[in-house]
Write a protein that binds this DNA or RNA. Structure first.
Lengths: 208, 208
DNA sequence: ACTTGACGCGAACGCTGTTCGTACGTAGAA
DNA sequence: TTCTACGTACGAACAGCGTTCGCGTCAAGT
């Protein structure tokens, strides 16, 4: 069963989550699809196992009260990179009940950081939920965009420059702010947008 | 083609997005699945049309600089309620390119509100992105949970009280904070968590 | 050596999105 | 009026999905 999870993660890492079908996974294990159901109840169950394995590889820091902001954003960056390492897997994370013990472990770790930083328990609890949700959604969006680049024709997907050109070309009377600030709307290399949102939420948490 | 979108929204409203298959939609229109492709290129195209229709029904307020916070959170609440009115449709929203003119209209409206409120253009642009992403993810999570309640056996899904009981029953030495603050972790009726995250981000935006 | 039990897997089911060829209805030309 | 030609609509089919059933095989117990 451990090998099933490992092989599944391998398939996702090289071909994306959409390619992880029971048949494809069975083929990678040199067997038929029916044999998988001896080790796994469901595809949903497999998804849970995958997310659990992902969370198990996250490293929880020892809470340092003075550095709680860096520590919590570091956790989010860890999750982000883990999600992006297995493109599209965040879809499974979004559709999952938070019952898994490995997820609870991560949640416990983040709670410890926030409480050590002096955040109120209620704010900390809800903030963890919001952060995990945002990270998963952010990674899903990125994975979907990357998937489009592979699957569809290249002219259907637009890069940043092309998008900015299109925004500028919009009718200025109905989209005055969009045309004027097309540069800002399309700005952000790498994970600038991610960092911005994280600091937005963490700053909001600190000012409470 | 307008009728196709209307019927599709009707199906989603009563049976959920997962039930919106080409065959089910064709059946609701008293025809076969092949006929749909005369009006719609793809299922992805249909999804875009649905989200476009959804966004078209959003009401953009006239920006009032003093009330920008209430206005932007009001927009998010509008989107949330619209998403929840059609359970699961936020999945389509998350997997979509932001090219649709109706989405641009909403984005333009929110940009106008934030700029009128004195938010820097770069912060406003990124904040809109983050807010839209969070709203979609939040609604997707809710829809998935509701779906589970319908599909699976009732004992697989846990309500708030049961979840709190389980958290409290965890081993206290490995989950000290989770067991102690199980009440806070499971707290929040209605959209309290949603309101919290929104004010978190908007407050962070104001302190910039 | 015979029985029994468990396990693995080929084949099939019902479902999905999508395509192809045909048949029909209509509009224009002779 | 009659014939043609074109565009549209749809029944049937295809490839793929998750999942289940039942048979065959193999190991252990008596």
């Amino acid at each position: 069963m451990e090998q099933v999870v490992d092989t599944a993660l391998g398939v996702i890492a090289t071909e994306g989550y959409e390619a992880l079908t029971m048949r494809r996974l069975a083929g990678a294990l040199d067997t038929g699809p029916a044999s998988l159901y001896a080790h796994v109840v469901n595809k949903a169950d497999l998804d849970e196992l995958l997310i659990g394995r992902l969370c198990a590889e996250l490293r929880l820091p020892e809470p340092e009260p003075a550095a709680w902001r860096e520590q919590v954003s570091g956790m989010c960056v860890q999750m982000r990179d883990q999600y992006l390492k297995y493109p599209g897997i965040s879809r499974a994370a979004l559709a999952m009940a938070p019952t898994d013990p490995e997820i609870l472990r991560v949640s416990e770790g983040m709670l410890a950081i926030l409480l050590a930083g002096g955040v109120a328990p209620q704010s900390a609890s809800w903030a963890i939920d919001a952060l995990l949700l945002y990270v998963a959604a952010y990674c899903l969006e990125i994975s979907v965009l990357d998937q489009r680049k592979v699957h569809d024709e290249a002219d259907w997907v637009v890069d940043t420059d092309e998008l900015q050109r299109r925004l500028t070309a919009l009718p200025a009377e109905t989209f005055p702010h969009t045309t004027r600030h097309a540069a800002e709307l399309t700005a952000g290399k790498g994970h600038d947008r991610f960092d911005f949102t994280l600091s937005l939420m963490i700053d909001g948490l600190a000012h409470r």
